[in-house]
Nucleic acid binder design. Sequence first.
DNA 1: GGTGCGATTGCA
DNA 2: GCAATCGCACCA
Length: 196
Amino acid sequence: MKQIRAPSSPGAAFYRRDTLQTARDLLGRTLCRRLDGGVVLRGRIVEVEAYDGPDDRASHASRGETPRTAPMFEAGGLAYVYLIYGMYHCTNIVTGAAGYPAAVLLRALESPLEGISTSGPGRLSRALEIDRSLDGASLLGRSLWVERGSPVADGAVRRTPRIGVDYAGRWAKEPYRFVIDGHPALSKRPARRRSD
DNA sequence: GGTGCGATTGCA
DNA sequence: GCAATCGCACCA
């Protein structure tokens, strides 16, 4: 069954690829959110993190499928939204093939609301009014989707370890965070010398 | 049924 | 440096 979507929006195949590749390719694209009233909020994606596969100890999926992580095990192209610290939501885009748990965490946007940037996944979700009602929602639907935006050259992409996953052993060091180098909206890293 | 904690943020 | 705040993973 063919989905109706804007020509500038990627189809399901875009999300069902390798998670790291999809994460990198999401940089520069526009995240779009339509509110119930019809208003559309948009922001350019400038920071993401990949959570890749069942062995990635930084990923919620590393302990197998649970009610919370079920969306991560679906085929790519839907949202995985969860509540963190009882007060913030984190918005992810599920990637890869069905049965392979993977997703890309959206961490920062540029100008989602008329010149206002959001820094950090909790604030990003709040700015676009994304909560668990969108958990499992299709990225090919009417509430949340991605548009082409402005492509980012390889030279402008910087890779670093992910933030806030120090519990993950060697996986904490994998360069799974992708950012537009030097962008002012990037999350601040917890105090830490070297290796960024 | 009870317990511990987190892919964060803001304030002291 | 640390409190806020609650769903859920895990154990009993």
